[in-house]
Every structure is written in C-alpha cells, then in structure tokens.
Write a protein that binds this DNA or RNA. Structure first.
Lengths: 150, 150
DNA sequence: TGTCATTAGTTGTATATACAATTAATGTTT
DNA sequence: AAACATTAATTGTATATACAACTAATGACA
C-alpha cells in the first residue's frame, strides 16, 4: 500500500527524498514488528538473534565485545548487556582474554547453535514476506540502499 | 558502502531477500541515529517530531489519540506518554472531548508550530543525506518499498 | 433498565536504547 | 619508573518500547 495511505497523510511530501526517509523508517518498523513475532516463540529479541548470528559467523573463533558492536545492525545498543542476557540463557560463553585482560572473548555455545538451527528451520519460508518482489528488484533495492548511506 | 563491508560479514547472505531485510533495518538504524542528532538541539526525539508533524497536518482540527497512533511511523510506541511529554513542553494542548468523554482531542499550539518552523529552517539542506541518489532513483525506491509491504 | 460488549485511553512492568561517566588494563613518553 | 593517554568494557540514569491489564464511557439489546 502507498505510504501516504498507510499513514493517512493528506498532504503531499515536499519531495521524493523526504518521502524516502519516512518510507525507510516506516518499512523498517514494519519489519521489526514482524521480527519480534518471529523470534518470540524462541524467547529472544531481534537484537539477540543478530548477536547470535554474528557469533555463529565467526565460530569457533571468539569475538570481543567491540567486534560484536561494530557488526551489529543497531550500533548503539549495549553489547555488554545483550551478551549477558544470552549468557544467562546459556547461548554464549564469556571469558576474559589471557593476553589482554581488558578484553572479553565471547563464543556461541552448542546450545546457541542449536537454537539458531531451530529458528532457521522454522523460518525457511519466511522470505515470503517479500513475495511481492522479484529477485532482481531486491538486488536493485540492495544496491540503492548501499549507495544511499555512502 | 556495501552492507557486507559495513557489518564486516565474511559469509554471504543466503539470498537477496535476506540481505534486503538486514539492509532495510540497518539503513533505518543509520537514519534514526542521524535524526536523533538532527532533533537534539531542539530538545525533542524523532518520535516526538513525528507526532508534531502529524498534528500540524491536521491543524487547526484536533486529532484524538488513536488517530495519532494510526498515523505514526512506529505504531507501537505509546501515544499517551509521547503526547504528555509534548504537553509538558507546551507544544500541544489536550482537551477531553465534550461529545464523547472517552476521547481526548489534541491540538498543536503556536509554540509547537514555531518549533517545527525552526526545525524545518535549520534542516533545509538536510536532504543532502541522500545526495548519492537521483530523484528518479528515490521514486523507484519509494515504489518498491511500498510494494514490499503489500 | 440492567447486562454485556465495545471503544478510548491510561497505567504497570519488563526490557531496550542513548549517552555519559567510570573502572581497569595496557601503551607511550620522558 | 612515573605520569599521562588510550583502549575495552561496565555501570548509571533518563528515556523509550512492547505488551498486557486496567478504568471509564458509550452502545446494543433483551
């Protein structure tokens, strides 16, 4: 549906760029709401899922907290506290690094990998959210978004 | 910059749609961080700005709370508390509706309109965030985002 | 008119975010 | 080695979000 209709805006946006800014925020919020539902049965938040995927990407090599932060979708969320929550659920392990005791090494556990596998399986069909788009449209969109942040 | 580089992802996304989901969330977070900075000198949050714009759109006609919610970018944020914050700063006025005393009519004040005018002036040049894009690219993007949520 | 359902908004609570201040370990420099 | 700077992470605090429970007013109707 057109953005203007979804947010019941009677006036026009002053230009395409302004509409684009709102459109990206709006679409992201829509997607985030879906993600919350998608991960809720597994007891984690979208950000926690993101951290687990980051750790799976580097496993079995550990990552330090600042590595995780820099890879996160939302750079400003607090990695210390997110990781602590995952640790309490047994999905990651924390260990102070011996060579540099300021630094904390974090690794995903077997339990964490299993959780991700479960989620992936349950969401195999999830890309259906975007079923209105063709693959090549998704490519164009990805390309333009990448350029937009340039 | 390519999303894969920004989030230092070594592995490939499993498909374009999965990358697109992350790309939208990531771009939105990037935009949101800019907005926080953009509005900070004026002492309001992006969501508060959004509410003020919605009210300006309908002024001088008041809106009830549920109207505001349904027009907001982030539907889940709590309109009652957002409006209360704006009221404390003098940017909006609340009045229980006489015809239907469940309902609360909210109007933007002169002070609120002045604030928006100030912000608009200060941010005249802001669309520069998107200077890597042409107008027609922005149009395509808007169109595809609209379709994606369909 | 009394009962029940619906509508509009508010409040409580757990969690998350933004951001600054702080702690602790390591590097650098004289 | 002492003083200072930098790096890595943690903590504190104010604000925001997600969501459910709740209150109050109105509507429907037997």
């Amino acid at each position: 549906m057109r953005l203007e209709d979804e947010i019941k805006q009677n006036k026009k946006f002053s230009n395409e760029f302004e509409k684009l800014a709102v459109n990206i925020l709006y679409t992201s919020s829509w997607l985030e709401a879906q993600n919350i539902q998608r991960f809720k049965p597994f007891g984690i938040s979208p950000q926690q899922y993101n951290v687990l995927r980051i750790l799976r990407g580097s496993a079995p090599k550990p990552l330090m907290l600042s590595d995780i932060s820099s890879r996160m979708i939302d750079k400003n969320s607090n990695a210390t506290r997110l990781v602590e929550k995952l640790r309490l659920k047994g999905y990651v392990k924390r260990e102070v690094c011996e060579n540099n005791r300021r630094q904390v090494d974090i690794v995903i556990t077997k339990k964490g990998l299993d959780l991700l596998a479960d989620i992936d399986k349950a969401n195999d069909s999830w890309n259906g959210s975007f079923k209105g788009l063709t693959k090549s449209e998704a490519e164009v969109l990805n390309d333009v978004l990448d350029r937009l942040r340039g």
